[in-house]
């Protein structure tokens, strides 16, 4: 294909990138240097770096995103592996994907019904004589719901990576005297690393800026940077500070991308 033709077909893609990826990023970056009165300043960044509230919030965001990602990974890898072994794996995969068709808020509200004082779990606990417990507004419930919502995005890339492994490789490994564990460690794991990295990116990055679930399930006992951004844009209308936090999040995401990319070095020709 000639260079010109190539450009012609790529044009919509570049336009898309420029309009919906680059331009918003530039605007956020620009806004982050404006104060309440629209003057140019770096004060927002200084405020952020000097405020114990924001620093603690940043730490919270990263910590909870880490926990959510860790939990989904622990669940997703075996699930993906088992589904890949099934004969009717398409059906099982569809079951995994199905919940993503339902609106996120609806799923969150459903959990309120499950975890509440009068929810199904507490009704059951009372029934077996254990009495009701507060489940909502705890760290555990927050992480559970967030992990549930993110789970499909971890399972899918790992599943794809596992399915792509040729069975002959595993057979060869076993035939040549490797134990099952060695086969996993030396053959399956390295070949699925890419999938795991993609899954971590797909889960960690959105988890950094969760905000509705922090309020609905976490009762704002879990405060992340997403909460602060929402407040700055909607309540105080301090778009500058909101954008500054946005930039911090973008940087945090870039770091995650770089870190997870590093682990792929062996797997893919650059």
């Amino acid at each position: 294909m000639s260079e010109k033709k190539h450009l012609f077909f790529a044009l919509p893609y570049y336009l898309w990138l420029a309009l919906f990826v680059i331009a918003p990023l530039v605007l956020i970056f620009y806004q982050s240097f404006l104060n309440l009165h629209g003057q140019f300043t770096v004060q927002n960044y200084l405020d952020f770096a000097q405020s114990s509230v924001y620093l603690k919030m940043t730490f919270n965001s990263v910590w909870y995103a880490f926990l959510i990602t860790g939990l989904t990974l622990i669940i997703a890898y075996p699930v993906a592996y088992i589904i890949a072994q099934f004969k009717s794996r398409d059906f099982w995969l569809a079951l995994v994907i199905l919940p993503t068709w339902i609106n996120l808020l609806l799923k969150t509200y459903a959990f309120i019904g499950i975890l509440g004082e009068k929810g199904s779990i507490n009704t059951f606990l009372r029934f077996i004589g254990l009495g009701s417990h507060q489940l909502l507004f705890t760290d555990a419930s927050f992480i559970l719901v967030a992990a549930y919502i993110e789970l499909p995005f971890m399972i899918l890339p790992i599943y794809n990576a596992i399915v792509a492994i040729k069975p002959s490789l595993i057979n060869a490994s076993l035939d040549l005297g490797a134990s099952r564990f060695q086969t996993f460690r030396r053959v399956i794991w390295p070949l699925t690393k890419n999938g795991v990295a993609a899954g971590i990116q797909a889960v960690f990055i959105p988890s950094l800026s969760l905000f509705m679930i922090t309020r609905l399930i976490g009762g704002n006992r879990v405060i992340t940077l997403g909460t602060a951004i929402e407040e700055h844009f909607l309540t105080t209308q301090n778009w500058g500070m909101g954008s500054t936090i946005g930039v911090v999040l973008v940087v945090a995401m870039l770091i995650v991308m770089l870190l997870t990319d590093d682990s792929k070095k062996g797997g893919r020709a650059k």
């Binding site: 507004f137 009762g219 704002n220």
Partner: peptide, 17 residues
């Protein structure tokens, strides 16, 4: 403080939360 919530408080209080 049990939770810091907005409109969903209505639902919680109705359900004796």
């Amino acid at each position: 403080t049990r939770a810091v919530v907005a409109d969903e408080m209505k639902m919680y209080l109705k359900q004796d939360e």
